[in-house]
Nucleic acid binder design. Structure first.
Lengths: 139, 139
DNA sequence: TGTTTGTTGAGATTGATTTTCATTCTCGTC
DNA sequence: GACGAGAATGAAAATCAATCTCAACAAACA
């Protein structure tokens, strides 16, 4: 038995915990941290262990199913890989996270790859500042 | 007594630990993490404490003397602020860290600020992949 | 000099993540 | 359907970076 994801990816061995974790990740409207993933998975299978969550996050990451992001905090956030790559904009004040994308980023990466003779496999652009609401409060 | 840095910045209160930590940071050829800073500072003052290192990293950061970076790891790295802002390119295979800068990044940030009505105060672009040496070994 | 305020070292604490270990499960082969 | 090797699991302990507590001490300033 295999689990199919996007008609392309299979996870092996297939275990009920993996299936559960992936389905929680897929239902999630945004990135989760390990603890939140654990909390949501526990609702459906109370016996799942936090260690299993961490172990499988590594597995999924290695398989390229999910992205790991560092959003300012020490802890990591995870999200299913989607078609359009996106980056994050985090408000220092209210913590709101906005996603954005820009074709300029690809141009930039092309340039960097050429200039440095480097092959880029992972991109993380993290912008922090003040969202339009919090901008008003300030200065 | 004040400590002068770049003829502009002063740290107050001025303590021997702060002076030591800043001088280690300035002598460092590249970013350090808290532990490495602690190790180097300990060589000159064996009694300095790790808590002091962390406390002062926060102080220096608040004063705008240093930058805090997340280089793929959970832990943070710190470096003195320099004139040209730069970003990092990290080789997955050998761990080598290369700095780069690109005017495209500023263009991108302008665009993001405009489109999202956001005020950006901190930029961190992190690229991971394979350097020219390790690229050969692979595929 | 005396007082107030901020800083320090040492060690305990936190919170996230990883590892260990005994047990259980998956899955290709019989 | 049973078998067995190797992989995955839960629970608890261990690790690791970072933070906090607190008594002792140093800096700033009157």
């Amino acid at each position: 038995m295999k689990i199919n994801l996007n008609k392309h990816v299979t996870i092996r061995p297939d275990t009920s915990q993996r299936r559960l974790l992936l389905s929680v990740m897929q239902e999630a409207e945004k990135h989760l941290d390990a603890k939140e993933l654990y909390r949501r998975a526990s609702e459906k299978d109370a016996s799942i262990s936090l260690a299993t969550v961490y172990r499988n996050l590594h597995v999924f990451k290695e398989q390229g199913l999910i992205n790991e992001r560092h959003l300012g905090q020490a802890r990591c956030f995870y999200e299913m890989k989607r078609l359009g790559e996106h980056q994050h904009l985090v408000c220092e004040s209210c913590g709101q996270v906005t996603e954005f994308e820009s074709p300029l980023l690809n141009k930039l990466i092309d340039e960097v790859q050429r200039k440095n003779n480097f092959f880029v496999t992972k991109v993380e652009l993290y912008l922090e500042g003040y969202c339009h609401k919090c901008k008003e409060g300030k200065r």
